[in-house]
Simulated assay, not measured.
Amino acid sequence: MKKIDFTMHFSAVQQSLDRVFKDMLTFQTEYLQELFARNDTVTVDLLTERRNIKNGMVNFKDKSYPVIKTSKNYNHNYKDKYVEFPLPLADLALMKDFALTSEEVQHEPEMFDLNWLNVPYKEWYKYRGERYPIEKQHGLFKLGLAPSADGSSSVAFGHYFLMNESDIDKTLIKKWIFFYLDKYLPHCRFQGINRFYPSRVRPFSLYKKRMALEWFSFLPAEILPEEVPSANEVIYLPNCGSIIISTEQPYDFENPEMRKVTAAIEQELHHLGLLPLVDHFSIPQISDLPFISREQRLKDMSRGNGV
């Protein structure tokens, strides 16, 4: 049974860490708790002060949890350590408080590091290979969040999933995406669905140094469905941008037939002047590009100012 290993990223502007954290807890309860295995506890990975770790236990607010693993914080100015431990779902709301006790966070507020998973990290990496099959609806997830590194009032949060392809579909992904967009628009930017491939595979565009499309790709532009007829679906988010859904089933760059679909979409977007230039490290980030309305785009095209 083939697995799909992918990420879903957002950036919420002008939103507090508290609000985003609470919404992520709600997302975990509403969408992940029944779909994934090992629902009684989650594994937490965070940066915490060394004094919170004693005798193989993490201690906080009169509660103690057994340590799975610790590792050094490579910023030698602080004594913090990364610690991994199991946390009952009933105590999930304590995670943010754990992270905020970090010595590093107290000195550098943007240095916030917090992830929670439904399995230990070693399980995640074990199942990424083909040797260990994932039972039906027993996929793995990791949720993580952090304030923006530039010090602005925004919060970046990513959702990572390792699932059987048969357990994921376009409808479910749309539900997950709009859980956040319905709460935060116009102050939330969806950054697309990116799939992890074997190390030898790196998706590339039909055009040199242009963005390669994935299953769900976001562009900060107003796009009509009839302008990109090869796409499976185009969703316009007013004054924010458009989500281009390339295929009905999970997109696979290694599938030649699916690659033909995205190549056709890239041709259509390039013709519209909407296939962004990116370098080897995907810079600039799509979320950094300004929004362009269709009216403005048509004016630019008439002047020969296409991207």
Score class of each variant (00 low, 15 high):
1 M>E: 07
3 K>G: 01
15 Q>F: 05
23 D>C: 06
26 T>H: 13
28 Q>A: 00
30 E>T: 10
31 Y>G: 01
34 E>P: 00
44 V>C: 05
48 T>P: 00
56 G>I: 11
69 K>V: 11
69 K>F: 14
72 K>V: 03
75 N>C: 09
78 Y>G: 02
83 V>R: 12
84 E>P: 08
87 L>V: 09
88 P>Y: 07
99 A>D: 07
110 E>C: 02
117 L>K: 00
119 V>A: 00
120 P>L: 01
130 E>D: 15
131 R>N: 14
131 R>M: 04
132 Y>Q: 12
132 Y>T: 12
141 F>V: 02
146 A>P: 09
148 S>A: 03
151 G>W: 01
153 S>I: 00
158 G>L: 11
161 F>Q: 03
165 E>F: 01
165 E>P: 07
172 L>P: 01
172 L>H: 10
173 I>R: 01
174 K>F: 01
178 F>T: 04
179 F>Q: 02
182 D>V: 09
183 K>F: 11
186 P>S: 13
189 R>H: 12
191 Q>M: 11
198 P>H: 06
208 K>H: 15
208 K>Y: 14
217 S>M: 03
218 F>E: 07
220 P>Y: 04
231 A>F: 06
231 A>T: 05
231 A>D: 04
235 I>F: 05
235 I>H: 06
237 L>D: 10
249 Q>H: 12
253 F>G: 13
261 V>H: 06
261 V>K: 11
270 H>G: 08
270 H>C: 13
272 L>P: 02
276 P>T: 12
288 D>N: 01
292 I>W: 06
293 S>R: 14
294 R>A: 12
298 L>F: 10
300 D>W: 08
306 G>E: 12
